[in-house]
């Protein structure tokens, strides 16, 4: 027998929560970035689970687009990290306050 749907949803909720805690508690901008990737992946798991249990391809097509957007986000986000590091010599988010007044 296959695993019921709520188990996948519960696992996805746990992974999403770990990602949220990572974003809220960590101060290293690259670790925050990786926590965001973790949250995107947990939502992907939800979409794939619903897609398999409903027999509909729409969820998996959406996961495909989420992966493409995550790749674009990774490229631009890491370029911003490099640009900030070149100016401020830090990746600690408390030291990056040039947009704060």
């Amino acid at each position: 027998m296959s695993v019921p749907l709520p188990y996948y949803l519960a696992l996805s909720a746990i992974l999403f929560t770990i990602g949220v805690i990572g974003v809220l508690a960590r101060r290293n901008v690259i670790v925050i970035f990786m926590s965001i990737e973790l949250m995107l992946n947990s939502v992907n798991l939800t979409l794939v689970a619903f897609s398999a249990f409903l027999g509909d391809v729409a969820g998996q097509a959406l996961v495909f687009f989420v992966m493409a957007v995550a790749a674009a986000e990774a490229a631009v986000g890491l370029a911003i990290v490099i640009a900030v590091y070149r100016n401020k010599q830090t990746v600690h988010v408390d030291d990056i306050n040039i947009l704060k007044w």
């Binding site: 027998m1 749907l5 709520p6 794939v48 619903f50 398999a52 249990f53 409903l54 027999g55």
Partner: peptide, 14 residues
């Protein structure tokens, strides 16, 4: 209202 068993066409979807 999640269905409790995987859809029978699930192997064809992915």
């Amino acid at each position: 209202a999640p269905p409790l068993a995987m859809h029978r066409d699930a192997p064809l979807v992915g």
